[in-house]
Design a protein around this nucleic acid. Structure first.
Lengths: 198, 198
DNA sequence: CCGTTACGATAACACTGTTATCACCACGTC
DNA sequence: GACGTGGTGATAACAGTGTTATCGTAACGG
């Protein structure tokens, strides 16, 4: 999956970073902590990954790969529209199960960090997986024909919106976010369905 | 609007913070910069606002108040559904015009910061403004009756999703985000419309 | 077996938010 | 009016951060 196999030191650094991120959130993800967790010194992080941003980038790529896998893992049935709705549920499940990872992927929480080219490509691949499912629904004549990626972006937004607000704790605490997610996703799919105009 | 009138020092600190945030983004928003911008010392920030979090909180509240005003400013016509759609446009316009503020409001970008009670109330007020417009549409029999706040949360998510992804630069650069925003908002409104079931 | 080279641990640097110190200035009292 | 007292705020210190420079060491080539 990764561009080239990592040596032991690199992979242990990445493993340590992954562990810290999952266990204590991104605020605890410091170069010193990562280095200590990997059993090396801070210089290791810099020689292997070029700095903290490099580690972030690697984790981000991992995250998008997992998201792609999660979307791909949604089973394909005879009802492509229902499949798309289940993708929305899978998306939310992934986000809630890997909150820290998700924040890393979709919030620019690390000040100076900018996504690398490879990270952008991996993110595009995740969107592409969604677009593939959109294609299936189009071929079945269930949603309007058009650019699959653009359509997938709409659905992606319908997933990300509720998930993002839910994780940030905006809105009343009593909110049933699973229901919000379901409603918006259902509305989006219905809005794209072939019967409707515009 | 604010709980109690601020003295000169407090308001100049807030003004400096607002200016730095708008001009250079939240990464430049340091206590020393704020104090220097306000012409005082760092201690001022601590005695007036209790620390950086207090300033963030004040800016956040301002942001939600502006958002509330932006939604309220959308003109009310004889077509409540069209009004809701224009709210979506206004929402995106607000977000793009005040990117740094929006990130402060919806990304937990400052590590240890947690919203104060007052901030939560102000955020709820913004959602309430949206809920008011939902109420109008319900009264007109245009969308299904139900909890206005829950319905407003769905619409809010439909606004936030595209805006968030657009600002983060996720997705292909050629994406027409205004169109994504329009489509999702239209789909959400349609999905809530009285004619549809579920 | 030595010279070179590259690696990595340590420590330093420029920052950050936060806190302690402490001079100073205004006020109240004699 | 002079003096003691209080609080305010500027300075500097502290514990972190990411990053970089120094420099000992260990491995490799001849």
């Amino acid at each position: 999956m990764s561009q080239r196999p990592l040596d032991d030191a690199s992979s242990s650094i990445l493993a340590a970073a992954r562990e810290i991120l999952a266990a204590e959130g991104q605020a605890a993800l410091t170069v010193r902590r990562i280095a200590a967790g990997a059993g090396g010194s801070t210089m290791n992080v810099y020689s292997r990954f070029g700095g903290k941003d490099g580690v972030i980038d690697a984790l981000l790529i991992e995250g998008f790969e997992h998201l792609t896998a999660a979307i791909r893992a949604v089973r394909t049935t005879k009802s492509p529209l229902a499949d798309l709705l289940r993708c929305g549920v899978a998306y939310r499940t992934f986000a809630l199960d890997h909150q820290a990872h998700y924040e890393l992927m979709f919030d620019r929480v690390v000040p100076g960090y900018v996504m690398s080219e490879r990270a952008h490509v991996t993110a595009a691949a995740a969107l592409g997986t969604m677009a593939d499912r959109v294609q299936v629904a189009m071929d079945a004549g269930l949603i309007r024909r058009g650019d699959t990626v653009a359509t997938a972006t709409v659905l992606w937004s319908a997933c990300h919106g509720p998930v993002s607000l839910e994780m940030k704790g905006v809105g009343p605490p009593s909110t049933d976010w699973a229901e919000v997610n379901r409603q918006l996703m259902a509305a989006a799919v219905a809005g794209l369905s072939a019967g409707q105009r515009r």
